Amino acid sequence: MESSKEEILEEVMGKHGGELVRLAFNYVKDNETAKDMVQNTFIKCYENLDNFRSDSAMKTWLYRITINQCKDYLRSWHYRKVHARSLVGSAFNSLLPSTEDEVIKESEQEEMKKLIFSLPPKYREVIFLFYYKSFSLGEISEITDLKINTIKTRLSRGRQKLKNLMEEATIYEG
């Protein structure tokens, strides 16, 4: 007996919802917006479920939809307007004191995140998918619609850029 679209969607939401929100958050940097992006992903999934050919895994299809949703959002006028306002707000909030324990505990992780997020998006994207999400080169190719050799090149250049940034950070700290 075949599952209905609703049953398939419910299963997919339970299985991949959390990781898709984390993926979207890495693009949009806002939890509520990330949830909205994933909700839009599931709407598109539902609408196009009959067209899904199973040429790729459901997970890679969902990742691709989510990434495209996020990229579209980041190009939108609404995002640019909201982002400008939040920059002003975060500049003010950064002046507020934080406890020493929190700073020590999170400083290394935050520094690495900053370095990764300072990379150009084309490098940041493949590094994130490869190292943080453990996707294979083939899966990344399906998600990003790039050739595997392009992904290999971007990984290599991204790692080199990250290494250079880490060395620069060490020089300035030392």
Rank of each mutant, 00 (worst) to 15 (best):
L119K: 00
K147G: 07
E108F: 02
K147V: 00
F135Y: 15
I148F: 05
M112L: 15
S118D: 14
P120W: 03
Y132R: 02
P120S: 09
K122T: 11
T144K: 06
N149P: 15
Y123Q: 09
I148E: 15
Y131H: 10
E139I: 04
I148C: 12
S134K: 10
I140D: 04
I148P: 12
L115T: 01
R154N: 12
Y131C: 09
I127G: 03
N149Y: 09
S107A: 15
L115P: 05
F135S: 01
I127M: 15
K147Y: 06
Y123N: 04
I143T: 05
T150L: 08
F117L: 04
K133Q: 11
F117N: 12
I140N: 00
I104Y: 06
K105W: 02
T144E: 09
E139A: 07
I148D: 11
K152T: 14
K147L: 06
F128E: 06
S134D: 15
E106M: 13
L137F: 11
S134A: 13
E125I: 03
L119Y: 00
P120R: 06
K122F: 03
I116G: 02
F117C: 01
K114C: 14
S141G: 09
M112H: 10
S136E: 08
S141F: 02
K105L: 14
E110N: 09
I104A: 14
T153Q: 09
I116T: 08
G138D: 15
V126D: 07
L137T: 04
L137P: 01
T150S: 15
I127E: 07
I148N: 12
K152W: 07
L137E: 07
F117S: 05
K105S: 08
S134P: 05
K133T: 01
M112K: 12
R154S: 02
I104P: 00
F128I: 09
N149K: 05
E125N: 12
K133V: 01
K105G: 04
I116V: 15
K113Y: 15
E125Q: 12
S118P: 01
S134M: 13
L119D: 02
I148M: 15
E108W: 00
R124C: 06
I151N: 11
E111G: 10
P120L: 11
L146H: 04
N149E: 14
I151M: 12
K152V: 11
N149I: 02
F135M: 14
T150R: 02
S107K: 09
I104N: 03
I151L: 12
S107W: 08
N149Q: 09
R124M: 10
I148S: 11
I116F: 08
E106D: 11
Y132D: 11
P121Y: 07
E142D: 14
F128V: 05
V126H: 02
I127C: 07
V126C: 11
S118W: 02
P121E: 15
S118H: 10
K113F: 14
N149H: 09
I143H: 06
E125M: 03
